[in-house]
């Protein structure tokens, strides 16, 4: 097992991160404009000083190797846009908020998705199945920049139940988590439904029914456990997606998360900030995928041996 994990880290995780850093570093430099170009003219002298201060006057390859050296030491550099802050500091401030938002959204999508899946699978082909699937699928169809303002209009402006923006009280967490989580409800509902329908025709379910156990107990106690395996494996990418993909929701609700920095850094050509967030997000996504792979490998020895052969 340890061998598998070590192989996973050294032969897949680290090369993937290295590749991400390299591609992102050179790609962002290809974009026209620089971090210090502005509408008002910046004098050549000032520009020279700024470039020299941040090492941008060195040849690109030297800058690249300097950057690699620095990130190996855990130094993501200073932000160009926010000169008094380091990239690591900005990530440390924004990431916990994004994680909190992502966690609530994930919990919401799991609860709602599994419930919708259960309802749908309890009577496949019925109106109940149809309605639960329509409602959950609407989460994918309605983009968050539409759903968010609609929820704000109803619960914030018309009913006055929650604040329309901000991240202070617990009630401020409700609408953003709902908006962000809705996208994943449909996936989880469909996975649960498919898993349940597959499990419900298994022999052990038939045995349980033969024993005279009520249908809902069969479903909740016997079938659901097995049916949720695809949902568990989906949780890795879903968690990473929720944590890293919250830019729109953070902007709509004015939430101080990392997503806003990720996007604005690209617009500002804040090279170190872009690199910092890309590397960090890449690490988060790779981490979640690795965790899922390890979990599955623990659960299924056949998979472990197959993965060992591949690597």
């Amino acid at each position: 097992m340890i061998k598998f994990i070590l192989r996973r880290i050294f032969l897949q995780t680290l090369p993937a991160l290295f590749l991400t850093v390299t591609v992102a570093f050179f790609l962002i430099r290809l974009a026209p404009g620089g971090p210090f170009s502005s509408e008002k003219n910046v004098s050549p002298e000032v520009l020279k000083q700024l470039n020299s201060h941040y090492g941008l006057d060195k040849p690109l390859l030297i800058q690249y190797f300097d950057y690699l050296k620095n990130i190996c030491r855990g130094d993501l550099g200073p932000s160009f846009k926010y000169p008094g802050r380091t990239v690591a500091e900005l990530i440390a401030e924004g990431f916990p908020v994004s994680v909190e938002l992502g966690t609530y959204a994930l919990l919401f999508s799991l609860l709602t998705g599994i419930l919708a899946g259960l309802l749908a699978a309890s009577k496949p082909g019925s109106a109940r199945d149809f309605v639960s699937m329509i409602i959950s699928t609407s989460g994918i169809c309605i983009p968050s920049f539409v759903l968010g303002p609609l929820l704000v209009l109803l619960f914030g402006l018309k009913l006055g139940l929650v604040n329309v923006s901000g991240w202070n009280s617990m009630s401020d967490r409700l609408l953003p988590s709902f908006t962000l989580g809705m996208v994943y409800v449909a996936y989880i509902a469909r996975l649960t439904r498919a898993g349940l329908l597959e499990t419900m025709v298994q022999d052990y379910i038939r045995t349980a029914r033969a024993k005279g156990i009520p249908e809902r107990v069969v479903m909740l106690r016997h079938a659901l456990r097995g049916a949720l395996l695809p949902v568990v494996s989906f949780m890795g990418p879903a968690a990473a997606g929720l944590i890293t993909g919250s830019f729109v929701v953070e902007t709509i609700f004015s939430i101080p998360g990392l997503g806003r920095f990720f996007i604005t850094a690209a617009f500002n050509r804040d090279y170190t900030m872009i690199m910092g967030t890309v590397v960090f997000y890449a690490a988060v996504i790779i981490f979640f995928n690795t965790i899922v792979d390890i979990t599955l490998a623990i659960l299924d020895p056949r998979l472990r041996s197959r993965l060992n052969e591949k690597t």
Partner: peptide, 18 residues
């Protein structure tokens, strides 16, 4: 001082007394 970048969000915050 609140850094609310989205002007629609800011208008809603004004409307609800924030």
């Amino acid at each position: 001082f609140y850094p609310i970048e989205n002007n629609m969000t800011e208008e809603r915050a004004f409307r609800t007394g924030q």
